[in-house]
Design a protein around this nucleic acid. Structure first.
Lengths: 194, 194
DNA sequence: AAGTTTATTGACTCGTCAATCAACAATAAA
DNA sequence: TTTATTGTTGATTGACGAGTCAATAAACTT
């Protein structure tokens, strides 16, 4: 059965399965066997490709971060005004691709992972830094000196919305979540309307 | 050595040790032995008093929640105006008692625990409900119809600030954190000043 | 065709840990 | 002073899970 060139396929399947299992279990207490099973292979093979469970987690993180980054870049590309850029970044954060049950659950676990694994912590910082600078691009022309503190507030608000969503059941509502962010900005920036 | 009336003392020591260990490890991967050792007893005794590790976690949660509730009530008692009440609730959230490394780390784990343990999820909802209603007491006279959405936004912001603090190293700065909340409110409520 | 590399897994090792138990000690009640 | 009751622990059990390994097989190389 063994064909050649399986590596990328297997790795992709494992990354996907890791995210699903993390979201499902809601904790890092997920066995390699569970992940491997969901990805349709033996746990030995998972170890063969990733070496350790930790590496699997990190690969899953990178994947989520990459998707997120791509989505933001895409949205940003078609925005020309500062207002448009702001809108784009916020909407991307709560888009159907990122604001999903499994992904939200995975995020929570990434924060936990970051408590013990330096590389996870680094990745999370990179994400926070990007979010901040993306927000600042839109905010600086609109809010000037207040831009920095607005960006920090928005960042915390977004993380908080994710965290709270992790506690709820049912389908996450991105529209509603985005509305909270716009609500935060409206009175801060004259003439800003969602 | 065994005197009588040890139960409450042992239980309190275990609860305290659980919070410390949870904060230290940054994850639920804490063994009963670690907790028991920090509390100065054998793991068998810990099981004797709590029955299971899960019960220890829940007791720790209840304890944190109780302290938090007491602090808010205390601050609220000496506030007479709506503005004062708002201030009181926000400051209590970031007070020296609650906004500490270990406690922040423990919070993160409570959210993880809530993913699998219904009682943990219930406790967290109770906390969120209380926070919300405490905020509303102050907000309704000041913001009227907008009070509800402001309370939700503030709640998410507070949780987000906690979450982000869990990622940082060093001593948490409650003043700075509280400032973010005030910053959120200032433009929303005419005449509100921290 | 022989040799090498890639894919794949079942079985195994080794460690860890929650929970239980048997036994012992001290205090309180009878 | 027996007889509970409460406190306490070392040792043990039983389960589970990460990571390793030997073995098998298909595919590529020369």
């Amino acid at each position: 059965m063994p064909k050649v060139g399986m590596e990328p396929i297997r790795k992709a399947a494992l990354v996907k399965a890791t995210i699903v299992e993390l979201g499902r279990a809601g904790s890092l207490d997920v066995t390699v066997s569970q992940i491997a099973k969901r990805a349709g292979m033996s746990s030995a093979l998972a170890h063969h490709y990733f070496g350790s469970k930790e590496e699997m987690f990190l690969a899953a993180m990178r994947h989520v971060l990459t998707l997120y980054g791509a989505e933001v870049r895409g949205a940003l590309a078609v925005a020309s005004t500062p207002e448009g850029r702001l809108r784009a970044v916020l909407l991307a954060n709560f888009s159907a691709g990122n604001f999903r049950r499994e992904v939200i659950g995975a995020w929570l676990n990434f924060y936990v992972l970051a408590q013990t694994v330096p590389e996870a912590s680094r990745l999370l910082r990179v994400y926070q830094g990007r979010l901040r600078s993306n927000l600042l691009v839109g905010l600086r022309p609109l809010a000037g000196a207040k831009a920095e503190e607005l960006a920090d507030g928005l960042g915390a608000l977004i993380d908080g919305v994710y965290l709270r969503e992790a506690l709820k059941l049912g389908t996450p509502d991105g529209k509603l979540a985005a509305a909270m962010a716009f609500n935060y900005l409206k009175p801060q920036i004259k003439g800003f309307d969602s």
